[in-house]
Amino acid sequence: MESIPIEHGLILAGILFTLGLIGVLTRRNIVFVLMSLEIMLNASGLAFIVASARWGHAEGQVMFLMILTLAAAEVAVGLGLIIQVYRRYQTVDINVLSEMKG
């Protein structure tokens, strides 16, 4: 089996993470924001798997499972919130939720 440089795997995780970050920062649609968050979470999971593969241990996969659980719970709550927001404001524009300003 050929080997892969570890930094390539991590850089891939970094690229996916930054793409997700750009999505969070630019999109005004809440659903897109949530999807971008999923991308970022997935990127961090990828980093764990890469590290796990480097050492040949199962701990990284365990952490990935935890992240997966977290993502599932977060999406469930987040989508519930989106439904609530849409019901109240009839829009998915996140900028309408700016009442808590100083």
């Binding site: 970050l21 969070v24 630019t26 005004r28 924001v33 996140i94 700016s98 808590m100 300003k101 100083g102």
Partner: peptide, 18 residues
Amino acid sequence: MIVKTQTGYLRWYALSVA
């Protein structure tokens, strides 16, 4: 001064964190 940074926009806060 600082109250101006408190815009209420989620993306602004995310930008600050980033």
